[in-house]
């Protein structure tokens, strides 16, 4: 890298649960560089003590989310050219989650809320998750898959939210989570709505009871930050509205 090559001014939040401050780094600017590339450069070339988290680098795993210039984003699919302001980046750990160190947050509260929202699939025909032994006449045979027409209304509603990668971007961008620490948050509620629309699932009643009330979908003010921030283009705000409607009218 020559001396004259253009540099990014990158301010990175360094610290732990007790507190921290921004540290500044100069990183060589490159074409088609992602924000995760910048963080990786700092960790490998400048300061190996920098803590951050990533895995797939292609937008599948949901590990690398951070707050970039004030906005939560998946850093592996965010080009520096799209978000840098005058060659400057400010990177902070995801908001609304406890910091472990530097850019790595503790995701446990986020996933605990998925569990609270009954976010796991409950097979209708085998509540313990086992392969069903027998079916009523006219039903599909042992070992076959359930037939769910992809174009059916309910499957389309389930498909709308199923691509969530659990990155926590919506959770970090949600004002209600910041104001009400018990609030389950957009991702968990989106997951609950996805399963409510899954015709193979048998846990609807429990799930709707679990997501109702002041810590659940009824806390949402539909400000739609989650929908605006979701890197996968999912609409958790719409899912939460669906839960409210479903609970009021008594879902199917």
């Amino acid at each position: 890298m020559s001396e004259a090559s253009p540099r990014l001014r990158v301010r990175v939040w360094r610290g732990n649960a007790e507190g921290g401050a921004l540290a500044e780094y100069a990183v060589p600017a490159r074409a088609n560089q992602t924000v995760l590339d910048v963080v990786t450069h700092i960790q490998r070339e400048v300061d190996p003590t920098l803590a951050y988290r990533f895995a797939c680098r292609v937008g599948m795993c949901g590990s690398c989310a951070m707050v970039v210039n004030g906005r939560p984003r998946w850093t592996c699919r965010t080009h520096v050219s799209r978000v840098a302001k005058d060659g400057a980046l400010e990177l902070r750990p995801l908001a609304n989650l406890p910091v472990i160190r530097d850019l790595a947050t503790d995701m446990a509260p986020f996933f605990d809320k998925w569990a609270k929202a009954r976010g796991s699939f409950q097979p209708k025909d085998a509540p313990d998750g086992a392969v069903p032994e027998e079916f009523a006449p006219g039903d599909f045979a042992v070992g076959d898959f359930a037939v769910v027409p992809p174009a059916s209304k309910q499957r389309e509603a389930a498909d709308a939210g199923i691509e969530c990668i659990g990155c926590g971007v919506c959770y970090a961008g949600c004002d209600i989570v910041a104001w009400n620490p018990d609030y389950l948050g957009p991702a968990a509620l989106n997951r609950a709505w996805t399963l409510v629309n899954d015709v193979r699932d048998g846990g609807k009643k429990d799930r709707l009871a679990a997501v109702a009330g002041d810590a659940g979908c009824h806390a949402c003010h539909s400000t739609q930050s989650c929908t605006a921030h979701c890197p996968k283009g999912i609409d958790p705000s719409g899912a939460i509205a669906g839960l409210k409607r479903g609970i009021f009218w008594g879902v199917r």
Binding site: A212, G213, D214, G216, H218, A219, K244, I247, F248
Partner: peptide
């Protein structure tokens, strides 16, 4: 009143 009823009202 629970959250559902408050929401409905």
């Amino acid at each position: 009143m629970n959250g559902v009823q408050l929401w409905a009202v």
